[in-house]
Amino acid sequence: MSESGQDNQLRLGFLETIEIDGRGRIGGLLVTNHSGRPLEFQCTTPVRPNRTQEILFGESLKPWLLGELIGGTLLNRVSIKPGVVITSDPLLLELRNHTAIPVALAEDEGGADAHQTDSATFSTDTEPNSDDRPVRVGNSLLRFHSGHQADAQSLKSRQHLIPDSADLKEPLERVREALAETVRTVFSR
C-alpha cells in the first residue's frame, strides 16, 4: 500500500457523481482515514459530452465519462491517495481499468437485485461477474471489477484495519451532499 501511506493505515476513497440539470455531471472523491474521518475532498467542474461524443462512444460513453474522465481526474488530483476507492455506481468501476488502485462497489445486504438492474445498463466491460462473491468489510458488502478479482484478495488482507462497525455507504452520502452544496454555492451562480 505504498500509495496510501503506512501499511498499518488504510485510506478510503469514496467516489460519487451527481447530475446537474442541463449542465452535465460532476464528481467528488472524499478520502478518509480508516474510520471515516475526512482527510481530503476533491470535486470536478460539471462535464457534459457533446453530440459527437455521444454518437461515437455509444454505450461506452457513460463508463468513459464517469470512470475514466471524472474518476481518473479526481484520483490523479488527490494528494492523499486512497488504498481502495468505493462507489455505489457500477459505472464507476470502469475507473479500475485506468488505475492500479482497487475500485469497489458498495452494496446493501439485499443488494443483489439492485445490482442486476444496474448491470443491465452498463457495458459488459465493466460488469462485475455475478459469480464473484462480494467481500464483507465493516457492515457493507464490496464487489470488485470482474477483470480485477485479485483486488478482493488484496482488500481482504487489510480488512482488519477497518472497524467492524464501519458503514462504507455512509461516506458516499456525505460526498453527494458535498456535491449538492458545491452546486448550490458555486455552479448555480
Partner: peptide, 19 residues
C-alpha cells in the same frame, strides 16, 4: 481521421486540517 476532444475538467479541492 477524428480524435475525441479531451473534455476540460477542473477540480475544486479541500484538504481538511489535521486534528
Amino acid at each position: 481521421q477524428w480524435k475525441p476532444r479531451r473534455i476540460p475538467l477542473k477540480c475544486i479541492g479541500l484538504t481538511l486540517p489535521d486534528g
